[in-house]
Structures are given as structure tokens and as C-alpha cells.
Amino acid sequence: MSKARAAIFERLNAVERPVVEVSEREDFSVFAWDKAEKIRRFTERMQAVRAEVHQADRSNWLDKIAEICQQKGLTNLLLSLTTEWGQAISQNAARFPSLKHYERSIEDWKEELFYQADAGLTSTLGGIAETGTLMLWSSPDEPRTLSLVPPIHIAILDTDKLYTTFAEAVQEQGWLEQGLPTNALLISGPSRSADIAQVLAYGVHGPKELVVVLV
């Protein structure tokens, strides 16, 4: 198909290029919100799309997550054994439903992941206050499907990592400098659709419920 490539480039290169005024391109969107305001806006946006938001701190977040698991009647919880949060939960395993660690390649346990996992718990890279958004980067510790396949996604967000806008987050966290992961993801609520007569329905393909725990 390099013939197609050559033909396309030949046509594109045959043209005199339009000159473009670029001055407005660099506008950078950011707000001067303090931490409390960022939390307030983030929470408001998340709740508007039917996500649950819980407040916790370093001393009681384990209790909060145990409480959520109990309230949802989870029989199991899928998580990473290697993240800071995953380790702490695993050390207190008795307080939680049966813990499953994402240790094998998906091919080795696809059926269990698809049909038996009740909820997946992940850390987050941070959040965006303007739109009520979580940022997740896939990694060997926390694969993509952890926040995708189970019907409930529980995400822990460190409130020191809340940014006002996506533009600010990308710049402050140095996404370009770090190099992007296989899959960078923004999540702004549970899976939804309005494809049937514009009636909102949740849990089409992704999680039906999104639970955010602010720490």
C-alpha cells in the first residue's frame, strides 16, 4: 500500500500551503480556584452525572472503603497488590470482601474477570475540577480493564492532585516530558447512553457505578 501513501503525499505536497494566523492557538485555560473550591466543583460535577463522591482523610479512608464495600454488598473486590492503596487494603484483608489481585494476563482468567468480578478499585493520577474528571494511566500494576470490566469502579483520588483544567494537569504533571502510557484515560462518570429515545441509561459497556473516594 506504499503506492497509496505516495499518491496521497504527492497530492498534498502539490499544493501551495495556506498561511495561518496562530496567535490565538496558545490560549491556556486555567482557573485561580483554591483547594476547597476545586473539591467543591469536582464533587458537584461528578454528582451531576450520578457518580458517588465520598470524603475521607489519611486516617479513615480504609474505613470508608470498607463501608462502601459493605453497603454495595460486594462479595469480592479486584485491585492491585502493588499500589500504596492496594497494599494497605490487602494488609487489612479481613475487613474487606474477598480480595482478588490483578496478577495474571487477562487471557489466563478472562472468564472470571468478565463474569465474576463485582468491583474494581484503582488509584488515579489526579483529577480535574472544571469537568469532574479522573485521570488514569494504565500500568502493569493497574491494567486498563480494572476500571472497565467490573460493574462498579471505586477510584481513590488524592486531593492534592486536583487541577482546575485538563490543560493545567497536562502541563503541571509533564505528560509530554514523561511520555504517554499505552493508555491514558479521562473518566467523568459511570458509563452512560442516551441512544434510546434520549433517555439516560447507565452501565452500557463500562461500569454502572463510579464511586470516588477523596483522600
Partner: peptide, 24 residues
């Protein structure tokens, strides 16, 4: 498009599964 401030998912894919990754 739909009057949403942002869509539920914004998915940025930069390659296939790496050797140490478990899915994708």
C-alpha cells in the same frame, strides 16, 4: 455536540500492550 461539559470517557491510546502489561 451533546451539550456535555465532557464525555464520560476520553481514551488516549499510544500503542499496543507492552511486554510487562497484563491487558490491551
Amino acid at each position: 455536540a451533546t451539550g456535555q461539559p465532557i464525555t464520560t470517557y476520553f481514551n488516549m491510546i499510544s500503542g499496543p500492550r507492552k511486554a510487562d502489561e497484563k491487558d490491551g
